[in-house]
Nucleic acid binder design. Structure first.
Lengths: 152, 152
DNA sequence: TATATATTGCCAAAAACTCGCAAAGGAATT
DNA sequence: AATTCCTTTGCGAGTTTTTGGCAATATATA
């Protein structure tokens, strides 16, 4: 049920390169290809590896701007939260939505082409979200770094 | 230099499943395997696809807690920012670091096992970051959703 | 020590990748 | 409208990779 050193090496390697061939991976972790393959299958089946994805370049894809949006709702009724969350989930420019501690606050991570494009997103989507009492947007000038790799 | 409909379908598919076989991908976008493969190679070479990674389950990996940390530095001198950024980049629990507009603020996205573990991270790393004037941590109660897929 | 379980390495079949090459499709020019 | 040029496509073959069975080894438990 828990992860030994080899498992952690495998997870670290696949977090760096999810398309590494099993042959190369097995070399990096000092296992035969088949043994390594069985471990990867187990890590997938047990849910440690959720999925594999391609990460795109935000600049190339014309969404170099990240905006963090803090939202306060009008109340904490469960239906209010549900309605809000369902509506937020439909906005393609919103990459993350976190329910925050303290007052009923959400933080959204939004990507946009530029400030003007964010104005469109705001007008088209954010301003129409149900139950919102307050909304404050903070623009990122520059993403210093960003990784999807969890510490192992 | 720009992306046609087929390119966008490929990128959308690979953002969902980065290990999809080229054969299956080619079916989804109505191309022959070889033509599809050439397009993927071009998208990689042109930098649209940055890399492929495995996404791990944060709960399974024992880091279910996300914390957003807002940091104000003591000044805006370039050396100050550089030193800060270099030091932050070495902390494995920090997944993202954004330089924010307005006053010289940073936002960090940190993952931890729980609040106690965050206390360790704070003590061990965050409190030792150079040039920090102020630091405010906000805990996420729940991640409503999270995706790495940029809008295409 | 003896037994049971899990993990490993080897091997072969099946699947997938990768490249060269000729044909098809579009755009621009005459 | 025809020709030329350039890009993209589909086909096919050689190579690589994946995948599962099987016996042997290693690990854990009693």
């Amino acid at each position: 049920m828990s992860l030994d050193t080899t498992d952690k090496k495998i997870l670290a390697a696949l977090q760096r390169d999810g398309r590494m061939s099993n042959a190369e991976l097995s070399e990096q972790v000092n296992l035969s290809p088949s043994a390594c393959h069985r471990r990867v299958q187990r890590l997938e089946a047990d849910g440690y590896i959720r999925n594999y994805v391609a990460l795109l370049d935000a600049r190339k894809m014309n969404v170099p701007t990240t905006v963090f949006v803090e939202i306060t709702l009008q109340g904490q009724a469960e239906e209010l939260l549900d309605a809000f969350e369902k509506a937020v989930a439909r906005i393609p420019d919103v990459l993350e939505c976190h329910l925050m501690a303290g007052t009923a606050d959400y933080i959204l991570k939004v990507v946009a082409e530029n400030t003007e494009d964010f104005a469109r997103i705001h007008r088209q989507y954010l301003s129409r979200l149900p139950g919102v009492a307050q909304m404050q947007s903070s623009f990122a000038l520059r993403t210093v770094f960003k990784t999807t790799a969890l510490p192992v």
